[in-house]
Write a protein that binds this DNA or RNA. Structure first.
Lengths: 160, 160
DNA sequence: GGTGAAAGCGAGGACCA
DNA sequence: TGGTCCTCGCTTTCACC
């Protein structure tokens, strides 16, 4: 059983630290400690504790897809042929290895999986859907919806 | 017109740097320069150039939703009453201010928007959908699909 | 839990090829 | 562009409260 938040008492200072690190993962401990009204040692110890407890999974650079030539972001809903466990498993494994798939969830509802896919343009996406997605193990039906505009992309979790 | 990747020549070293920073935003320039076979000054200059050109949008800590008490992640498709510009605009502005909405795209297809929402549990989500989402400006219909399992959540863009 | 100090390392700049 | 210092400030780890 994973630790959850009742097990790890997190006070207001920890929350402030997490807010800051979600905003800017590269703040110095010196700045961070000032923001949370602490000296750097206890602040540093808290950050380490949050990392080790698994609350902080990692630190990542956020890149601009368009500046990298990815003009297309698509949400692809995938329905599998049947719901046997092994079919889902091999689909999941296959998806992990496809770099164009930037996120994937097993979901409830009409479809089984929801993928977020990037592509350089619509043509490249079409080819990708035809040659890669449709040929994945057990795929029965796919439905693609394209992002016309990204309204909100900072994926910050609220810290009440 | 935004700069795109043809305007900014990016060589293999820049790509390696971006891969490393997507994996771990807190690598030291010393380690990074070793990974890309450079000394630290030119490596540091490249990182700064990538930041200033907008390729790197920022650095963010990735938190574990479950350890923060968010057991529910939902994908919510929203259809607006009509497609007049002002209705969409006020919906977008409203969505920006809702912390539970961690991502939102204006999309093509049957629905107009696709939201990713976090909640502590299903009951909280139900309340949120009823009292917040349904009451947003111009909302006609919503369809919620729940994440049963996150297959892939590192949102790393491929660097070919 | 918190503070303060000390050592050592890295960021960032000046300058050369 | 890349490489070589150099220096200041921060990180990290003490011992102690």
């Amino acid at each position: 059983m994973a630790l959850c938040w009742e097990d790890l008492p997190m006070d207001k200072i920890d929350k402030k630290i997490l807010i800051s690190l979600q905003n800017d993962a590269r703040v110095t401990v010196a700045d961070l400690s000032e923001q949370v009204s602490l000296t750097s040692s206890p602040c540093w110890r808290r950050v380490k504790a949050l990392e080790e407890s698994g609350v902080i999974r990692g630190y990542h650079a956020e890149l601009d897809p368009r500046r990298l030539g990815y003009d297309v972001t698509a949400f692809v809903s995938v329905m599998l042929e049947n719901h046997r466990i092994d079919v889902g498993d091999s689909f999941e494994v296959a998806v992990q290895g496809i770099p164009q798939v930037v996120a994937c969830h097993n979901v409830s509802g009409r479809y089984d999986f929801m993928l977020e896919v990037v592509a350089t343009d619509l043509e490249a996406f079409g080819e990708f859907a035809r040659n890669v997605l449709r040929t994945l193990p057990g795929v029965k039906e796919i439905y693609s919806s394209f992002s016309l505009k990204s309204i909100k992309h900072q994926r910050r979790l609220p810290l009440p």
